[in-house]
């Protein structure tokens, strides 16, 4: 059932920009259209490209936002989330905690 929803109407998670739009919605309380427009502007892409895995894999790789197939040296996990917070200009709770704990 989950796969059916993902294919029928889901944005597509980190294959594209689904997680990024979700982050903005959660951080700023934005409705969907507003959140998509915000992310598109920050990533310098068209809203329609947010669900295009070809475009978004390139963008995510270039900006270090985390990709499905990680290459050596590419930001992963918390590293990618540092970049996501900076690129989207939002607070990410665990990134903040990471800074506090590492005194980074």
């Amino acid at each position: 059932m989950a796969i059916t929803h993902a294919h029928a109407s889901g944005m597509g998670g980190m294959r594209v920009a689904g997680d990024l739009v979700a982050r903005v919605q959660m951080a700023r309380g934005m409705k969907l259209a507003q959140a998509k427009a915000y992310v598109a502007e920050k990533l310098a892409v068209d809203v329609s490209e947010l669900t295009d895995p070809i475009v978004m894999t390139e963008v995510r790789t270039d900006l270090g936002l985390g990709v499905v197939t990680p290459l050596p040296g590419v930001p992963k996990g918390i590293e990618a989330k540092f970049n996501i917070a900076r690129v989207l200009d939002i607070d990410i709770n665990c990134v903040k905690r990471f800074r506090e704990r590492t005194r980074f």
């Binding site: 989950a2 029928a8 597509g12 998670g13 689904g18 979700a22 969907l32 809203v47 669900t51």
Partner: peptide, 18 residues
């Protein structure tokens, strides 16, 4: 068998308890 939204109308997919 399968119906989907038009491109551009996709929404955030939140999983609970997965």
């Amino acid at each position: 068998k399968f119906i989907s939204v038009e491109p551009g109308r996709e929404v955030i997919l939140t999983y609970d308890a997965a």
